[in-house]
Design a protein around this nucleic acid. Structure first.
Lengths: 150, 150
DNA sequence: TCGATATAGTAACAAATGAAACTAATGTAC
DNA sequence: GTACATTAGTTTCATTTGTTACTATATCGA
C-alpha cells in the first residue's frame, strides 16, 4: 500500500488525476459520436439503454438505474418525448408519475446505436484478456463503493 | 474480445458507463474534501501540485501539464493569486506571459494537502497489489490515448 | 524593417449543470 | 376523515463550464 508519508506528489502519476483525465477523454469521445450520428446526449442514451433492457419505468426508477439526478433524467426524458423516441404511459398505481416507454422509433434508434456502443467498449478493452477485464470491472465497482462510503 | 454482434446491452455492465460513474464518484468525493478543508477546487489543486513539483511555469505550460484548457487554468490561477497562494513573476523571455509561482503560503497549503491527497489515492487502491496497480495505470494511459486517437 | 500571421492571456457571451423552491398526488397518525 | 408529512415531477435561479472574440506581444518572411 502506498505510504502517505511522502512530501511530494507528481500529478502525472497521481491516480485520481489519471482516472479523471481518462474517463473524461472517453466520455467526450463517446458523447461526440452519439451526438454526431444520432443527435443524442449521453443522458438520453442512458435512458434509452435502460428502457430497452428493462421495459417501461418511472423517472424515479430511471434515476436509480442510471445514477443521474432527477432533473437530469427529467430533461433527457423531455427531449426524447419531444423527438418521439419515448412516450409517457399513465401510471395506474401512482397518479404523480408516469411510466416512460420506448416508441417503435426509439427502439430502432436503440438497435442502431448498440453496435456503435459495443465498438467503443471493445476499443477500450483492446489487448486485454477476459481476466483483466473482470479485474477491471471489480475495481471500478469497488471504487464507486468506497467513494460513496464514509 | 467482446463481440459487437450482440443485440442488447446492459447499462450496468457497460464499461464506459461504469468508468464514468466511478470516476465521477471519486472526483466528487475528492472535490468535497479539498473544498471543505482548504477551500480549493480541483483545478486549483492541480495548479498547486504542478507548481510545487516543477517550479514556476506559464499558464500555457500549466495547460500542457494538467490537460485543462487555458480558460480553466486562467480562472484557477486568478483565484489563487487573489488568495495569495500564487504570485505572478514577469517573464523576461516573453512579454505576453508571466510565470506563476507558489508563494510561501501556497507552499504551506501544498504541504498540508499532500497527505490528504495520498490518503485518497491509497483508499482507491486498497487491497490491490503493486502489479495490479501498475496494470491499472497502464490501462488508464492507454485509454486516454485511444480515446484521443482517430 | 515592415506587414502578415501566430500565440498568451483575458473578456464576453452562451450552454450545461446543480440546488432549492414549488405543485400535485400520496401516505400516515390520530 | 382531516391535518401533517412525504414523494414524483417540474420550474426557477444561480453557478459552472466551454466557446468565441479580443488585445497585446512575438515571430516569420519578404
Amino acid at each position: 500500500m502506498p505510504s502517505n508519508r511522502k512530501r511530494r506528489l507528481r500529478l502525472q502519476d497521481y491516480l485520481p488525476y489519471r482516472l479523471s483525465v481518462a474517463a473524461n477523454a472517453v466520455s467526450r469521445r463517446i458523447a461526440r459520436a452519439y451526438e454526431d450520428r444520432f443527435g443524442l446526449k449521453i443522458a438520453q442514451w442512458r435512458l434509452i439503454a435502460v428502457l430497452a433492457d428493462e421495459g417501461p419505468l418511472t423517472q424515479q426508477s430511471l434515476c436509480g438505474r442510471t445514477l443521474m439526478d432527477k432533473v437530469t433524467v427529467m430533461r433527457a426524458a423531455q427531449a426524447l418525448v419531444r423527438r418521439g423516441l419515448l412516450r409517457r404511459l399513465p401510471n395506474r398505481a401512482d397518479g404523480r408519475s408516469h411510466r416512460l416507454a420506448l416508441t417503435r422509433t426509439g427502439g430502432r434508434v436503440y438497435h442502431d446505436i448498440v453496435p456503435l456502443a459495443l465498438e467503443h467498449e471493445a476499443r477500450m478493452l483492446r489487448g486485454m484478456g477476459a481476466v483483466d477485464v473482470a479485474r477491471l470491472e471489480r475495481w471500478l465497482r469497488q471504487l464507486e463503493r468506497t467513494a460513496q462510503g464514509p
